[in-house]
Design a protein around this nucleic acid. Structure first.
Lengths: 206, 206, 206, 206
DNA sequence: AATGAATGAGCATTCATTCAT
DNA sequence: TATGAATGAATGCTCATTCAT
């Protein structure tokens, strides 16, 4: 077997592995959203993914690891997309606007993922701590940095602590998502970003 | 037995029952905070309360009912205290300030309860929905009404939707609490109320 | 206190004790009949008897003992009534007829007791063995003796073993009772005695 | 994989499943016979069958279902064997004789099963009702039909109700089995069939 | 004697995980 | 890799029995 062929084979195999991982994660999001993490059985996820129970353990160490991976994968995508989207924007306030919009767009485009993020991921202090120390801290920091940047540029009031402002913005957006998920009425989530920013900017800009 | 004596006896008995219920609830908050609802055993709660496992079921129908009762009791107190505190305040903005301060004061004064509220109570869509339809909706509505009142009095901008502002304020405060709980550093939570309000009022007042 | 008075008091007290025992046994029969022995709670019996749970244990050692007492009391009555009824009858076949009639009369006059006898008392080998060694053996023996007596008198065929005939008669009657209890149709049980005897006598008489 | 091989594999798999079900049922009969249904733990059955506790639930929904299955399987065999045995017999009285013999033969050949049938299956009205509506009714009906057939052929007296005669015969046989089980003496059960029939035929034939 | 709150042993059932095929 | 049967630890809840009042 030539190196080339082997390489292709390996590549294909890797892709196949990645695909099945993805399939399991997608299935897990669906199941967790519907039943909650603790009430979801590994067997449910396997069935949803169309594989055998045992196969799940070829890709994940444990049920817990699946939840972690759901979070990691989504957060990674979330952050990298966010970063690339704001990379070309020079104005800090426009950056924040983009971040806020993306936040709501993304979660409203995948309701199951939103449910897992807003509800299931918060069901244990243990996870919350890991969550908080992981991607979430990075996400909050991007907001903080952008606000600090805006202060330097003279856009935002200097008497406000960037980290507090970041938490306020994040908290407000987070609450919009949670309310949207739990609401019995169906409405567009994304426009809420500008509603939040209207207040936030008014409260933080010079 | 005279009426007086019987009456006292009954009163005492009722107090004893209430006491044991309280003891179980307190124990449950402690245990839930430490291990999370799903990882807490009824036996843990019983041991913490210093009673036998079976005794728990003389006061509560199920483990689930304990969580519900924790929430109900706390929320009731929370709301009634809040209402009585703002009853004598005439200025809507001062009312909001008092609400915000109370929110953080109360939760920071009982860290375990705060953990249960911020983390455990959110671990299931089912509970979140009940939670959302229960005391929480009432709480959010008090904030909303106060803002609407402020708009009528010409204190707050009229182009903002009271419900959105209420969610922003609540979301921001909620995030402060969550961060405080998960933070490894020890700091005072209550002062964050004014930090949040500094931005919130600036962003919403005329 | 004079001896006479004390004696009366004691007698009254004894009667009261007996009354409460009776009340508990009656309650137990009702409850066992409705739910089955294993599914009946001591608390159910106490409630039915209108007393506190703990009081049951002042009269009976255990739930098991209640079942035993139900059987003992009923069997005792059953047998002593039977004996007295046949005492004045001289013809063995008429005696058997009276026994068979009494058997069905008595059980059909107290459906709950019949259910306990036909169903609940048979739910454990342990009990069955005790049952079998107790009053039941005596009952079967009365039938056997009567048949043997009939053989001596030349009424019954001598090639049949009395004990086998006794079991046949008892088994047939027992089956009538069981069918009657389980039947959804309502019919008179007592007349079945003669139907059974019609065959039995024809099969056993000379 | 060829169809043949697949077919064999499937067949083998099915056989394996059936085998384990059988093993559990056999174990259950043993355990129920020894301890009684309510005093038997699922763990006892599992241990007796040489499998893990959880495995029981791969084959049966509940402990209750095991008891039902014991009955269903035995009754089915019982009836089908009975039917096939009497199919070639033309004389109704010989048919009844064969039925009676089979009844006792079968139960005396598996003492544990006999105990479960005579004792455990009767321990609850609920079960008795299902039992009575199920295979048992069918069994009794076969006897009834055979007697009716015998009346038409002029073998049996026409003034007797077939259903009553059927109950008498069944009740008598049933009593023989119960006595045999509870007896401390060891004796042959099967010969009792003819003893019963001697009386029964004498009492019912013209 | 009577009460009924408290006890705690006991058990059916579930389900994450393993492993022989 | 994939399977899915088997495992067995884990736990919410029940209820017979006790005992302080």
């Amino acid at each position: 077997m030539s190196k080339q062929i082997r390489s292709n084979t390996v590549t294909t195999a890797r892709a196949a592995v990645a695909d099945k991982r993805e399939a399991i994660l997608r299935a897990a999001v669906k199941v967790f959203a519907r039943k909650g993490f603790f009430n979801s059985k590994v067997a449910d996820i396997a069935k949803e993914a169309g594989i055998a129970d045992g196969t799940v353990y070829l890709y994940f160490k444990s049920k817990d690891e699946i939840l972690h991976s759901v979070f990691d994968r989504a957060m990674e995508e979330f952050i990298s997309e966010g970063k690339s989207e704001i990379a070309d924007i020079s104005e800090p306030d426009v950056k924040l606007q983009r971040i806020a919009q993306l936040h709501l767009e993304r979660l409203s485009s995948d309701r199951d993922l939103a449910i897992v993020f807003q509800v299931e991921l918060r069901g244990s202090t243990k996870f919350m701590e890991e969550f908080s120390g992981g991607g979430f801290a990075e996400y909050l920091d991007i907001i903080r940095q952008t606000i600090a940047e805006g202060q330097k540029k003279g856009i935002f009031r200097e008497d406000l602590k960037p980290i507090v402002c970041a938490k306020i913005l994040y908290g407000a957006l987070d609450e919009m998502v949670t309310n949207w998920i739990l609401s019995k009425k169906s409405y567009q989530l994304t426009p809420m970003a500008d509603e939040v920013l209207k207040v936030f900017f008014n409260g933080t800009k010079k």
